[in-house]
């Protein structure tokens, strides 16, 4: 029991590594704030393009979405980070990480928004068009607001996944929370920093998980 305390919950070490981990948490938040809006915008773009019902465009979009959903995000990240130098493209670390996560995240958000668009009855678009709204105006005022509300639980769930995803950036030594925790662990020969990092993730993400449980139970119950 005592070893458990000194190795996993060592208060001395916690005090020492706390600022360093907080720095890492800052990077985790920044990375999330970059990747989530980009991914949402990309996903919405995919859904809007596929609502045009152009056959070839749709095939291209499906290939994009399936391709980047099939790759484990870490594989994508490693491929971009270690593969791009061979193409003589020198991407800064943050950009490489953001690009890898964007490709993955936008395809997931794309699928979610597409399902949302499909959940809106055709009559909604027709009613809007019959009063003279353009396709674009009808999308913005009538389809997107309803679609977003219909798939809100999925959007939040995927947002949670994106924040968890940022921990992979530690593999290429981007100084985010997990990366800093592992460095601190190596320096202190003690597991406390990683446990502390886990607690910080819990604190950050637990409210989202709770919210999600509520929304999901409600939405399945409606079907």
């Amino acid at each position: 029991m005592e070893t458990l305390l000194t190795v996993f919950f060592n208060v001395e070490i916690m005090k020492k590594v706390w600022p360093f981990l907080l720095q890492g948490l800052g990077m985790t938040v920044v990375l999330s704030l970059v990747v989530i809006p980009l991914g949402l915008a990309g996903g919405l773009g995919i859904a809007i393009l596929s609502s045009l019902q152009r056959r070839w465009l749709n095939r291209v979009l499906i290939v994009y979405v399936d391709f980047f959903r099939a790759f484990p995000p870490l594989v994508l990240l490693i491929f971009i980070y270690f593969g791009f130098p061979f193409l003589q493209i020198d991407l800064p670390k943050f950009a490489a990480v953001a690009l890898g996560f964007f490709l993955n995240t936008s395809s997931y958000f794309g699928e979610i928004f597409r399902a949302g668009f499909e959940s809106i009855p055709r009559g909604q678009l027709e009613a809007a068009r019959s009063t003279g709204l353009t396709r674009w105006q009808a999308l913005v005022s009538v389809v997107i607001p309803q679609a977003t509300r219909n798939v809100l639980p999925d959007l939040i769930s995927n947002t949670l996944e994106v924040i968890k995803l940022t921990s992979l950036a530690s593999v290429v030594a981007l100084p985010e929370l997990l990366n800093n925790a592992r460095q601190a662990q190596a320096l202190t020969y003690n597991a406390t920093p990683v446990v502390l990092a886990a607690l910080m993730y819990l604190l950050l993400l637990w409210p989202i998980v709770r919210l999600l449980s509520r929304l999901e139970h409600k939405s399945i119950a409606l079907h």
Partner: peptide, 20 residues
């Protein structure tokens, strides 16, 4: 286990558990 990133769990199990 829904809130924790899986990589964090793997690292705790693999690198931290040997300490105990």
């Amino acid at each position: 286990f829904r809130a924790l990133p899986p990589l964090v769990i793997i690292i705790i199990l693999f690198f931290a558990f040997p300490y105990i």
